[in-house]
Design a binder for these strands. Structure first.
Lengths: 367, 367
DNA sequence: CGATTTAATGTAACTGTTTACATCAATATG
DNA sequence: CATATTGATGTAAACAGTTACATTAAATCG
């Protein structure tokens, strides 16, 4: 492999000049620049990325540490993050923690050793020390969907506004005529989002002067053995609510299965809506009303935040709050429906509100 | 930051000795080893990963280039690959190409420059040169779900046996009583898998002495604008088949929507089954009969293949063929059903055949 | 017991860039 | 015209490890 010295010798210049040409910094006359470039081409010289990295201490690498890359939400965020990275000629390291804080810590330590240039972190908690170590080493950390750790104002964050999402959804249900609305959330749902979604639910009720009934709030737990049965027992209400709102993906799935098991039809017997838009929500019968997380936006903004901080390390920590959007489909047909809403709903149904960009559709086309 | 020289000086030994202690190779007496370790601890010395990488030319990094990380299939494969990487103290770079061969090439060039230690590649094609360049640079390439390029026997591969999957599924449909079985595949489905699935379909028919009717094979195309309508038109049959087999994820979704649009009930009016198991297949109504790809296995084997080749570069190229498994659920209730099958199906339904490990279930629990 | 092997450690070259600083010529400035 | 400034280029010192080879002491062998 040709080195910068070979290039320099052949071009009859110094290595410094070659380096300047390669990096396009410093002053180099047109004439020598051309000569150097010819020399590079002739020798088929390629700068050694590793040597460069070592010398400059920039790895051109960002890591994303997520609890699970297979969830639709983070899958899309990662896809976008990788695209943004590519735009900047950066590379994205994928670290899946499986919701295991030990693995998370292990990854964070590893990433610090490797001196990645930044970390996107969807923490499961307990990594305060590792996060501090990272920032202390000058590695920017951006939290994904977790609020800023109150302890330090050192890290940026981008979060989805769970409160807004829950409130919008419940307000929609109320507007459409529901009065008795149940909410199910997963026991293991992140504390912050649990609180926020519950707050959204309550505020929506209050705004319409509806009573808040704790009886209608249920925690579900999807476990391997007990499976659906568990959720099923936990989700028996009497009298039956007219609408059921699942505050998360897992709960949504469990709830769907539970309703099927109870022989309840959607939306005839009960209306159903869930947090976390799913690509297939449009395709099944009935199409699901969901709160769509701006996953793509989240991935992009998080990445941009890293680059912004790399460009200016003094900037104050920032928390970007993204608004989810309500996707109205058939699963929430209203008990009483007014004409404007009907039209709107009808239209949505026809437009089929395909979540995704062409890219995602293309995605389906592969194996 | 303390360097190896500082450690050496403090311990009163040479840098070589320190290096030997760190890497636990070469001969070092217990006494000096202890002294060195004390010195390391005292100084808080951490070997510089970058310097090491540069010197040894091993990056401890594998890249996975996939068409789309959000598909359930590759999402799971990636999750597993990242876990295997972690076991080996390796890191996984995620490269999503969006089915764009230009981006794929760009990534492959980038990865070669970065001298990753290996590449998992779910190619969309046209990257022969880049693949060759990689292997020529001594970087092992393992193809994901693509057959070995006939041109060179340089790369390993791990593929899902599409033929087997299709054949098993169609044979199941036949056994259960279906005689008129339609198959839909996506126009953009990878050529190899298209051929294999079709072959499986035909062979299954032939084995039962059923006629092959080209009229029952349809290509669908999910496009953004035309959306479902398109699929809808393309999927009108007369007389109607009793079962419809979607040979892919995208087609599966399109088909589901189409059946709904045509007002057909599953499985009462028509039976439905699809390739590519989906995590939610269990939860919706009716639960879907699917061909489950061993995605996890695929990710693991591919990764192991890389490590195997790193350990022995002379080993002959290998193609690992993984068998998919049939997951029988409700969407294929049989027109005529015999008792054993009924029992089997019932049991499956009760066991709820949760695709995933606890990890995936946990996944659902996060935002 | 001298010769040979083995174990433990040290010396210094090597990896390929970047960049601070030096040099020198050409140009601008007072 | 002498001097300061600027532009173009060169020199050589980092950067922080690994490892081939050399050296020395200790152990083993005939």
């Amino acid at each position: 492999m040709a080195t910068i010295r070979d290039v320099a010798k052949r071009a009859g210049v110094s290595v410094a000049t070659v380096s300047r040409v390669i990096n396009d910094n410093g002053k180099v006359s047109d004439k020598t620049s051309r000569r150097v470039k010819r020399s590079i081409a002739a020798l088929g010289f390629e700068p050694d990325f590793l040597a460069r990295t070592w010398r400059t201490r920039v790895t051109h690498t960002i890591a994303a540490v997520v609890a699970d890359n297979t969830s639709p939400h983070h899958g899309i965020a990662l896809r976008e993050a990788s695209a943004v990275a590519l735009e900047h000629n950066y590379t994205l390291i994928l670290c899946t923690t499986y919701f295991d804080s030990q693995i998370e810590k292990q990854y964070l330590r590893m990433l610090r050793e490797r001196r990645v240039d930044g970390v996107l972190l969807n923490t499961v908690g307990q990594s305060e020390n590792e996060i501090r170590a990272l920032t202390k080493s000058g590695i920017p950390v951006v939290l994904l969907n977790r609020p800023l750790a109150n302890q330090g104002r050192l890290v940026d964050a981008v979060v989805v506004d769970s409160y807004r999402g829950a409130r919008d959804l419940v307000e929609h249900l109320i507007r459409v005529g529901h009065r008795r609305i149940a909410m199910a959330y997963d026991q293991a749902l992140n504390e912050f989002h649990k609180r926020e979604r519950l707050r959204g639910y309550k505020d929506a009720l209050r705004a319409s002067n509806l009573p808040y009934n704790p009886e209608l709030i249920r925690a579900t737990r999807l476990s391997h053995d007990s499976g659906i049965e568990c959720a099923q027992n936990q989700l028996v209400f009497s009298p039956r609510p007219t609408a059921l709102f699942a505050a998360g993906y897992g709960t949504g799935l469990a709830t769907l299965a539970m309703l099927r098991a109870q022989g309840l039809r959607i939306p005839t017997d009960i209306c159903f809506a869930m947090f976390d838009d799913v690509t297939w929500g449009d395709f099944i019968d009935p199409p699901l009303t969901t709160v769509r997380n701006p996953a793509q936006e989240l991935g992009r903004q998080a990445m941009e935040l890293v680059f912004a901080r790399l460009a200016d390390r003094k900037r104050p920590a920032q928390e970007i709050r993204l608004a989810p959007s309500l996707v109205v489909r058939r699963s929430c047909g209203a008990p009483k429906i007014d004409e404007t809403l009907r039209a709107q709903s009808e239209q949505t149904q026809i437009a089929l509100t395909m979540d995704p960009s062409d890219a995602v559709i293309a995605a389906w086309q592969g194996l």
